[in-house]
Nucleic acid binder design. Structure first.
Lengths: 216, 216
DNA sequence: CAAATTCCTGACCAACCGGTCAAGGAAGCC
DNA sequence: GGCTTCCTTGACCGGTTGGTCAGGAATTTG
């Protein structure tokens, strides 16, 4: 996927050095784009963080846009994945809790990826727009039907499945996207494991209390 | 507040034209900064949207940074306000529902303001950092104590008050900050009143179910 | 209406930005 | 070790960006 963009068709072989440097570049680009957005980021900045000169970086990715596309492509699978695991055959409460926990772990382990998507969407999703209206919409429609099925069977309180999904996205991603604010309010430097446990406990409890066990 | 920055001490009187043009500029700046962030936005862009030339804009605000500060200052009171209304003397469920509804209305009526803060925080809160660690932290500490009081009195399920507040921020602001994504998933162009009602109903139900009426 | 003040603009500037290119240096291969 | 391919870099380029400035136009004030 990455290789399809990076240095596309410019060398005969794909070398070890290419592999290494493209990874360095994409790591740096993730950091820079997720903080400054596409327009706010500079190629120099990315190159410096990747430990190389600008012309050298542009030897691997000919254009700034190519870097952005590559780093978005590299992370967007990871983005859709957790929801795909929501299993109609499972226990509703357990499935939803597991989904929340997976998403929260992603926010903890890949905060920059989360922020990159936040940036992309704040800017009107110029790149991911089509994916959102396509694959993501299909996926949400699908899983909303699963949740609606649970509700119809009386196994879950009657809530709008789509807005429930939005709530889960919002609350979990918040810990990555707004980390600066959360740190400021809670005090301390980084979000501690304790604080993540507290977040997880609160989310589980509110969501499960809010939708648990149906019929009312 | 704005006048303290704009054209500070450069004219003797404060004129009608100053008032009008500074407002035009700040409206335009809100739009542009909230989409592109500080670095991604250009002064030309803001000037064009405000319907004036760049030198003319710079006659009112000498530097790009001054515009950014002014537009953040103008909106950040509005930001803190809804939480301040949370009243220890009121009924817990009613107070929290009212808070959620107020924040959701703010996201609906001032989505660009919400996005501006999201941008600022994604960029590490270079300007608002001090405010977050100061006024906002104090406010949250204060209101968390109120909620903890309700919990101790058995009028609310035992949840971490701070993380509950984060959840409310996350879910309500999500409808402004990630509007593009929500529109993509729900289909349609703008978020309809119906969809806002559905969001409100879902939020009210999940939060109230999740924390309602205490003791368990 | 005329003087004082404020407002507006075109022309301009230095710094920065994305991107190119020629040429030398390092790896890989036989 | 020599040939081929790949990697790296300094110098450079046109366009954009934030910001200045001199001077003319509009507005306010007496």
């Amino acid at each position: 996927m990455t290789a399809a963009i990076a240095r596309a068709g410019r060398t005969r072989r794909r070398t070890r050095i290419q592999e290494e440097n493209e990874e360095k570049i994409l790591d740096a680009a993730l950091e820079v784009f997720s903080t400054w957005g596409y327009r706010g980021a500079t190629v120099d900045q990315i190159a410096a963080l990747a430990g190389m000169t600008k012309p050298n970086l542009l030897y691997y990715f000919r254009r700034k846009e190519d870097i952005y596309l590559a780093v978005l492509n590299r992370t967007h699978e990871m983005w859709l994945e957790p929801l795909e695991h929501l299993d109609a055959a499972g226990d509703p409460a357990k499935e939803i809790t597991a989904y929340i926990d997976r998403k929260l772990e992603m926010a903890r382990d890949n905060p920059t990826a989360s922020r990159l998507f936040a940036m992309e969407i704040l800017q009107g999703a110029p790149v991911l727009g089509a994916t959102l209206r396509g694959r993501l919409k299909t996926l949400v429609d699908d899983k909303a039907a699963v949740i609606q099925g649970w509700i119809d069977a009386g196994r879950l309180a009657p809530v709008d499945p789509r807005h429930l999904i939005f709530m889960i996205w919002a609350t979990t991603q918040h810990y990555a996207d707004f980390e600066t604010q959360i740190r400021a309010v809670l005090g301390g430097k980084a979000l501690s494991p304790d604080q993540f446990d507290a977040a997880k406990a609160t989310l589980d409890r509110v969501f499960l209390g809010g939708i648990g066990s149906g019929r009312d």
